[in-house]
């Protein structure tokens, strides 16, 4: 498993994503994969605030919907070009995220979770009831797809798939930067213990707010991509079940790990697809599968991989240390 580390690991995973269309039998598989990647971007955002910073945000889908509706409203009602609207999707979600964060992050633990659950529901209600702007229950139809950039067009399923892959890679690369820096360590310190982090001179409110804004920015961008990919929107996107789907991806893939959101959203998407033939009964299979996974892989798939790797490293170190000691002893007897 060593080849999954460092630059080589990135290269292999990116190559796999790029080669997927060659093995995909039809456009439907590309569609499933693209949507899974879009949700992976949003889940990566949720992972930052929940997995790394330890604040369970149950309104995450609301921010994804804000990003999606930003694109939908700006392109359809105001006839903005797609890319301008897309750029705004992350910004609008982030700005609203800032104001929600400043208020909600005053609460801790489950109080925060319940508050954000309500925020998510309020976002859903606003989208559903504000007919004149959001189209209410009918939603927004006829959203233009991504406009061509120079000679590159995004008309075919493959090109749209590659566009999504591009944004996924950029998102993960930035996330990698964040979580491995001093900033990421600051977030992790807050997750470990609020009190200890504070005693170490970390400004809780400022760091939590930054993490929250970044997470909503990710949700917004994912929403913007979703709008350009699916081309129609309904208030349903802000529904809490999407938030809980994303939490499932986190648990399956590995909460607080970089690749966890991707592994989770891919696996759940494909398991769900392959259970499609069971129709309504598929949850009967899916539910127990999830329970087994949580029992035997409590840190998710990627978390399990990290844990094994860590154990191997510790063993290697211990072996090295004992060998060094043996050498020292030998040197002692020779002298």
């Amino acid at each position: 498993m060593k080849y999954l580390q460092g630059k080589a690991g990135w290269a292999i995973l990116i190559a796999l994503a790029l080669l997927f269309p060659l093995v995909a039998g039809n456009n439907y598989q590309l569609y499933v994969m693209s949507l899974a990647f879009i949700f992976a971007i949003s889940t990566a955002g949720l992972n930052l605030i929940t997995g790394y910073t330890g604040q369970l945000n149950l309104g995450h889908a609301g921010f994804m919907a804000i990003g999606a509706y930003t694109v939908g409203i700006l392109t359809v009602t105001y006839e903005w070009p797609f890319w301008g609207a897309f750029a705004m999707s992350g910004v609008v979600a982030g700005v609203i995220g800032f104001f929600v964060g400043v208020v909600s992050l005053r609460l801790k633990e489950h109080f925060f979770a319940i508050f954000t659950l309500c925020v998510g529901f309020i976002i859903y209600l606003i989208i559903e009831k504000w007919d004149s702007v959001t189209g209410g229950t009918v939603g927004i139809i006829g959203i233009p797809g991504p406009a061509p950039i120079g000679p590159i067009t995004f008309d075919s399923a493959i090109s749209q798939y590659y566009l999504v892959v591009f944004f996924l890679v950029v998102s993960l690369w930035l996330m990698h930067r964040i979580v491995n820096s001093l900033l990421g360590r600051t977030f992790i310190a807050i997750r470990n213990s609020d009190d200890l982090a504070q005693a170490l001179g970390i400004n809780l409110m400022r760091n939590k707010t930054l993490s929250f804004v970044l997470s909503t920015f990710y949700a917004g961008i994912a929403g913007g991509l979703y709008a350009g990919y699916v081309r129609f929107l309904g208030p349903d996107l802000a529904g809490t079940h999407y938030t809980f789907d994303m939490i499932t991806y986190l648990l399956v893939g590995g909460i607080g790990t970089l690749m966890g959101p991707v592994a989770g959203s891919l696996l759940v998407a494909w398991v769900t697809q392959s259970l499609q033939f069971l129709q309504d009964y598929r949850m009967v299979v899916f539910g127990p599968l999830l329970v087994l996974l949580v029992i035997f892989f409590p840190h998710g798939i990627v978390g399990f991989y990290y844990k094994k790797r860590m154990e191997r490293e510790m063993k290697k170190r211990a072996a090295e240390a004992s060998r060094a000691q043996a050498v020292k002893k030998e040197a002692g007897t020779n002298a």
Binding site: S181, L182, L183, R185, I188, A189, L200, I202
Partner: peptide
Amino acid sequence: VGHRLRTKS
């Protein structure tokens, strides 16, 4: 992270 408070990044 213990020294984080003396940094500005």
